[in-house]
């Protein structure tokens, strides 16, 4: 039997989605900061690849097994590096 949507349920769903959209917007800047921090963390560890002072490579090696997600952030940040202004504008919702 086709489920009947009551007006109350629809309103509830609409309200939930609206709140989530606002939550996402509210934390957007924090998430951007988090990405930057995670990126910086990996860059610090593997800085020697781009000529930055870095901890002993062997120590970086010990951390490497646990850095999969952070490495992915670093690569995506490197992609954004071509268009940093675009990234900021996107985050601020400027079209």
């Amino acid at each position: 039997m086709k489920e009947k949507y009551s007006l109350g349920k629809l309103w509830e769903k609409f309200w939930e989605t609206t709140i989530q959209v606002h939550r996402d917007k509210a934390t957007g800047m924090l998430e951007f900061e988090l990405n930057e921090l995670e990126n910086l963390f990996v860059v610090l560890i593997f800085g020697s690849f781009i000529g930055l002072p870095s901890p002993p490579a062997a120590m970086a090696m010990e951390l490497l097994p646990y850095l999969e997600d952070e490495l992915r952030v670093m690569v995506s940040r490197a992609d954004l590096a071509q268009d940093p202004l675009g990234a900021v504008m996107g985050m601020l919702n400027v079209d």
């Binding site: 989530q20 939550r23 996402d24 509210a26 934390t27 924090l30 998430e31 900061e33 988090l34 921090l37 995670e38 910086l40 963390f41 610090l44 560890i45 870095s54 901890p55 002993p56 120590m59």
Partner: peptide
């Protein structure tokens, strides 16, 4: 190396704190 590890630990703490803040505001982030 301990100087490096100390700095990295501080930074990691910041990352984790930021994650906690985001999660408390937006559990589905």
């Amino acid at each position: 190396t301990m100087v490096w590890v100390r700095e990295l630990l501080n930074m990691r703490e910041k990352v984790l704190k930021k994650r906690q803040t985001i999660l408390s505001l937006n559990p589905e982030a």
